[in-house]
Design a protein around this nucleic acid. Structure first.
Ligand SMILES: NC(=O)c1ccc[n+]([C@@H]2O[C@H](COP(=O)([O-])OP(=O)(O)OC[C@H]3O[C@@H](n4cnc5c(N)ncnc54)[C@H](O)[C@@H]3O)[C@@H](O)[C@H]2O)c1
Ligand SMILES: NC(=O)c1ccc[n+]([C@@H]2O[C@H](COP(=O)([O-])OP(=O)(O)OC[C@H]3O[C@@H](n4cnc5c(N)ncnc54)[C@H](O)[C@@H]3O)[C@@H](O)[C@H]2O)c1
Lengths: 205, 205
DNA sequence: CATAGATTGTGAATTATTTCACAATCTTAT
DNA sequence: ATAAGATTGTGAAATAATTCACAATCTATG
């Protein structure tokens, strides 16, 4: 039950969660590791190994109870408990992310959005009143923001990330192609879409 | 230039490329695997192992020639040779991606954008005239589109992906949270931003 | 309620990736 | 020209992730 859970397992758990959610809506009560694996296009043993981190869940011979399994994953991943996030940089990408329903479905709430441009601050953008990034520290504390989504221009990325660390944000999802240099107290995950596109096309030739 | 190159190596190559590009602008002529590794926060042996897939590059005792190394990576990754891509679904996310400069920097050109909504088709969006997705097959052939970026709503994803396969696109960068079922002839890479956010916050507690 | 068939949970085996460690070889300084 | 120091390239070792394989145990059926 206890040891270290690989990041990849966490990611797959989320995929399982989506399918279980879907199965429940369909009224499906029970599922085998094989069927679940087929939906995600991985091996059934991988599904079982992933789930085994969290104790006994299905009966041997029977499959898994869809509802129970979904609830277990929801619990492990803290879905249902709301995590407040903010977005810094309400340009094209930031605005798109601000209205993405997929975050809510996993328990995230975009509780504040920031920019520093005069034509944005104070205006209503995607259902949020855009705040001045100078207010970061204040708002992070007030709204208990745990995670920041960073979508400022590359040039502003490092500076802004320092402000985020000082504001005591716990983690940053970094969409800029800049390597952020911060202390180990703050967790960073980089999303590099140009790299994804290149990696995809590399293996196409 | 030998055996199978791991996907992770390709991804790191791109990171190296970015730093080498930056170093060149600074006028730096030479770099060691250690310095490059430090910038990317990995081990120097990893850098050397990655580069070793492509033959001898640096001299022992000396480091690597920045220009030569950058050019080698550019060649291996086909940067410089333009790959035409298209975007299907010019909503919030599609529009943001359509004007992302980071793709160009790696040799990608957004050569067409598609939608099926009357208020978008025929209109100018982010520097592109939005085409009707009915014209997919025709335009893919005309403009030699290799890769498609899929940003339609989840409900339309599977249907649209089939149209893409029939249009002979080689690969799809899929931003929808839907598992696309297609033949093995077409390569798919899924970007699941909600999953990224969840994976990040999972390890924060 | 016994038997056949299905499916889990998990060590062991396999495969993939990262890191180590060092001979080979380059640069620089004297 | 030689020695000292730096740094590569790469097998071998170590780690990590995936897959296998099977005993354990459930369900369904007659
Ligand atoms: N557009 C994309 O599809 C895309 C894809 C991948 C990565 N990115 C990266 O995401 C980032 C944003 O991209 P974009 O296309 O939305 O750019 P953008 O220029 O449209 O938006 C950037 C926004 O950040 C704001 N900003 C600038 N400095 C700021 C600061 N110090 N504090 C707060 N806000 C500030 C600007 O006012 C602007 O609204 C860039 O780093 C880009 O490289 C973008
Ligand atoms: N917005 C985000 O930040 C975000 C993040 C991650 C993933 N996604 C996913 O990306 C997709 C797009 O998100 P969005 O927020 O841009 O949605 P959106 O509703 O703003 O845009 C979707 C666009 O697709 C067009 N469309 C619908 N059916 C089509 C069809 N059959 N052919 C061509 N075009 C069609 C619509 O007219 C619309 O312009 C969704 O699947 C969403 O789940 C979005």
């Amino acid at each position: 039950m206890k040891k270290h859970i690989p990041e990849k397992t966490v990611a797959r758990l989320l995929l399982y969660y989506r399918y279980l959610y879907f199965l429940l809506q369909q009224g499906t009560k029970n599922i085998s590791s094989k069927s679940l694996a087929d939906m995600v296009e991985i091996k059934d043993s991988q599904v079982r190994k992933d789930l085994s981190y969290f104790g006994k869940l299905g009966g041997q011979g029977a499959g898994y109870d869809v509802l129970a399994l979904r609830d277990m994953i929801a619990k492990v991943l803290d879905i249902g408990q709301i995590t407040n996030v903010c977005i810094i940089g309400m340009g094209g990408l930031g605005s798109a992310l601000a209205s993405y329903k997929g975050f809510e479905a996993l328990g995230f709430k975009v509780a504040a959005v920031f920019d520093n441009a005069a034509n944005k601050v104070g205006h209503r953008l995607r259902g949020h009143t855009c705040l001045d990034s100078k207010e970061l520290s204040k708002v992070v504390a007030e709204k208990d923001l745990k995670v920041a989504i960073l979508t400022v221009p590359g040039e502003a990325a490092q500076k802004t990330s320092i402000a985020l660390e000082q504001a005591r944000v716990k983690a940053i999802l970094n969409f800029t192609p800049v390597k952020l240099s911060l202390s180990k107290n703050i967790k960073i995950r980089n999303i590099d879409l140009a790299m994804e596109l290149k990696t995809l096309s590399f293996f196409v030739k």
